[in-house]
Design a binder for these strands. Sequence first.
DNA 1: GCCGGTTGAATTGTATACAATTTTTTATAA
DNA 2: TTATAAAAAATTGTATACAATTCAACCGGC
Lengths: 236, 236
Amino acid sequence: MKSAATAQQAEEPAETGAQQIRDAIRTAIVERRLSPGTKLSESDVGNLFNVSRTLARAALQALSYEGLVNVEKNRGAFVAYPSPEEARQIFSARRLVEPGLLREAAARITPDDIKDLRELLLEEGRLMSERGQTARRAEIKASGDFHLMLAVISGNAIMQRFMEELVARSSLVIALYGQSTASSCGHSEHGEIISAIESNELDRACQLMLHHIAHIEADLDLRERKSLGLKEAFEL
Amino acid sequence: MKSAATAQQAEEPAETGAQQIRDAIRTAIVERRLSPGTKLSESDVGNLFNVSRTLARAALQALSYEGLVNVEKNRGAFVAYPSPEEARQIFSARRLVEPGLLREAAARITPDDIKDLRELLLEEGRLMSERGQTARRAEIKASGDFHLMLAVISGNAIMQRFMEELVARSSLVIALYGQSTASSCGHSEHGEIISAIESNELDRACQLMLHHIAHIEADLDLRERKSLGLKEAFEL
DNA sequence: GCCGGTTGAATTGTATACAATTTTTTATAA
DNA sequence: TTATAAAAAATTGTATACAATTCAACCGGC
């Protein structure tokens, strides 16, 4: 199945090397094969993809613009490790943006779109029942793709890019602070949102969306864990 | 006067060369010293700032992530030339985001913030009355800074960055499609918005913000001008 | 044993060099 | 003159080389 993030307007088809690497690393981060804080040295990345450090560096820079990687001057690039405060801001941004996006999407949605959304939902459910890491990763992706697809339907490429960033960063946050192993606690809510859109209950759809985001956030444990790599860790 | 875009959280103080260049070019674009479509060759940029092509290229890449520059494979970087459709999407995004941002800002605003906003407004008015390019450029910047400052007050660094992108791209759009020479037709509206916030009339403030954005957009001529560099241009 | 400083390896920051592509110029023919 | 093709120049894509900084191991002193 194609990704929901397919570009609308025609762009240059041939991705320059750095972009391929960027996409590969991004996918690895979003699917949680790379954990927050992991160091991504330019040489290692270059060797891994059989390109020079130049391209590796460019890819890492690109990811830092998306907030998925932090590059610290003279120290290198690390998979982003969002602080609880950053996590709150990410979800605050989503609460701010997604209802409006949903309204715009609803105004342009076609029966075909609804079919696509329902198919995505089905796929998501199927993956939920499966076992294994591969299924889990695919499930994470599908869950995000639901929100992304609404952005695509809205027809606003700028908001779409922003949502891609927010969804990707959300995945990092959930990896860090998520409690319930089932990241998909809100799967059914996706379905309810579609139904509400379908029956033209826009206000209700927005409310559902807000609740849905709140639920995801409620599953996080965002208490400040001061590094406490000190003696405190051993004091009873 | 300090820019409204001052970072909230402490970041690495020393900007690596490429970032300085990026900022310089961005400012030039936003202040309209560089026109949309202008070619920015890596060598030229490098020479201009006395750095290697490596850094110039990095700066241009960075600007492309912000939507201020388009880099076309094997052809080079150009100051972005947003299409009418892109322009619509930029303002659509602003209408989607700014009311919510305003609400969040209002919830956290302090008397000091209001003072800062009013000062910015005063400065804006002062620049409006002045003549000359320098004043005009400063006015453009101040006008954008008003919207940016609301994002800063909201306390959400992610939304702040997004607004920075939107405001910068708006400047490009206005440069391309703006009709009234006075880009500041909506200056008084800024004041009304502040007043509405101050007197806690949130709904009204949001309405004013929406109207304000609509006014800016209404000053644009977004009719498709097909390139028509062909004979059609001469056919009577 | 613990602390501060010193040295060497590893890593990043930047410049340069070469390859690939595009653009411009020039030459040639219709 | 106009159009087409070939050659030259300029520009971007990528790799490599060198400088600067950070990190880690080591070592002598307390």
